[in-house]
Design a protein around this nucleic acid. Structure first.
Lengths: 192, 192
DNA sequence: TGGAGAATGTGATGTACATCACCTAAGCCC
DNA sequence: GGGCTTAGGTGATGTACATCACATTCTCCA
C-alpha cells in the first residue's frame, strides 16, 4: 500500500491528471503515522488539515454534555476525514478524530487544497465529486435514521462494511447507530 | 425578483465570472412555474434536472411503505434541490419534489451542469462550494438527530427558518422532524 | 503474570414516542 | 352555501429505547 500510488489511483478514478500534475498535487501532502488511540483532532483545536486514510481505521465523533459520544464516520483506507465545518469556516473543532487502530494518513491543508483547486481545474473537479459523494452518503444515512429502526440500521451497517464487525468494539458501533451499548447488545443477543 | 439577477447574485458570492461567462452559463437554465401542490419529481421518474428556487417553497421528501413521509429539505428561494442520488447515478427517483406554494424555479440539466463545469473552471468552483454547503448542513442535521430530542429540533428549525411557521402546515414540519403529527401537536400545546 | 481498566451482558424500571380512535374547525369547489 | 377534504387537537394504550445497577470476561502493560 504505497501512499502515493493509493492516492493516485483514488483520484484518477474521477479526474484526468498528467503524471506531472499529480506529482505537483502530491507534493502538498504529508504522510503521518498514528498509534491506536491517538488523537488527530480534538474538540477546541484549530483545524487546518484534512486527512486521507492510507491504512488503519479512524473515527470522527462528537461528544455531547461531556458524556455521550456520537460517531459521524468510520474512516477506512481511501476515505477522507476532518472536521469539515471547522476547516471551512475557520472555527474551532467541535468534532474530534482519533485512531481506532494504528493508522497512516496523508494530510492536506485547507489552504493548499484551495491553491491546488484554483491552479488545476481537474483537481477542483475531483474535490467537487468527492464532496458530492459525502453529501449523498450523509443524506442516505439521515433517511435511514428517520425511516429504519436500530436493528435494520445495524444490519445495513454490517452489510455495507463487514470488516467493522471485527475491527471495531461494539460500543463504538452503538455510538455510530445512535443507541446505547446496552440496547445494541440486547438486539443481537435476542435469539429468536 | 428577477430570476437571472437572483441566480447571478447567488453565484457571484462564491465564484468570479465575467458577465459574458455568466450569460453563457445562464443560457442553459430554463425558467418554469408551478402551482401549489404540483409535483416536480415523482418517485420512479427519470431524473435529469436540478432546480434553483426563485420564489415559493418546495419540499423534497421520501415515502416509506407507501405510508409515511419524511421530508429531507424545504427548498426556499436561492436553494437548490433535486433527487441528487438519482441525478448523479442515473437511477430512478426515490425522492420526490413538489410545491408547498406556487413557485418559480430555474432548471438545469445534469449534462449541462457537467458541460458548464468542464468549460468554466469558476463554475466548477461554485458547484464544489455549493455541494460542500449541502454536505455540512446534512451532517449538522444528522448530529442534531442523534443528539437532540424532538422539542429541541423543533425549536432549532424555527429559529433557523421562522418563515416556516406560517408557510408550512404543521404535519409537514412533523415529517421534517421525523415524528408523528400527534407528537408535535402535543409538544407545543403542553402549556407548562 | 497479575491486576486494573475496558468491553460486554443482563435485569429492573422509567419515558418519549407511535399508533389508533375520535373530535372539531377551517379551506375549497361545484 | 352545503358538503367534502384537509389540518389539527386530544385521550388511551403499547413499545422501543434509555438509564442505572451490577456481574462477567477480555486485554494489555508495568
Amino acid at each position: 500500500m504505497d501512499p502515493k500510488e493509493t492516492l493516485k489511483a483514488h483520484i484518477l478514478k474521477t479526474a484526468t491528471l498528467t503524471d506531472k500534475e499529480f506529482d505537483y498535487l502530491f507534493s502538498y501532502f504529508k504522510l503521518q503515522s498514528f498509534k491506536k488511540g491517538q488523537a488527530i483532532i480534538s474538540e477546541g483545536d484549530r483545524v487546518d488539515h484534512e486527512y486521507f486514510v492510507i491504512s488503519g481505521c479512524l473515527k470522527a465523533f462528537f461528544i455531547n454534555d461531556e458524556i455521550k459520544m456520537y460517531i459521524l464516520q468510520f474512516a477506512m483506507p481511501t476515505w477522507w476525514t476532518s472536521d469539515y465545518g471547522a476547516l471551512y469556516n475557520h472555527t474551532r473543532a467541535t468534532i474530534s478524530v482519533d485512531c481506532i487502530s494504528d493508522a497512516e494518513v496523508l494530510c492536506l491543508s485547507n489552504d493548499d487544497r484551495e491553491k491546488i483547486c484554483s491552479e488545476i481545474h481537474q483537481a477542483e473537479h475531483f474535490f467537487r465529486w468527492r464532496t458530492n459523494r459525502g453529501y449523498l452518503a450523509s443524506q442516505k444515512r439521515l433517511l435511514s435514521f428517520m425511516n429504519n429502526d436500530t436493528k435494520a440500521r445495524y444490519e445495513e451497517l454490517l452489510a455495507m462494511y463487514p470488516q467493522l464487525y471485527n475491527l471495531v468494539p461494539k460500543h463504538l458501533i452503538a455510538a455510530y447507530l445512535g443507541v446505547s451499548r446496552e440496547t445494541l447488545s440486547r438486539l443481537y443477543n435476542a435469539q429468536k
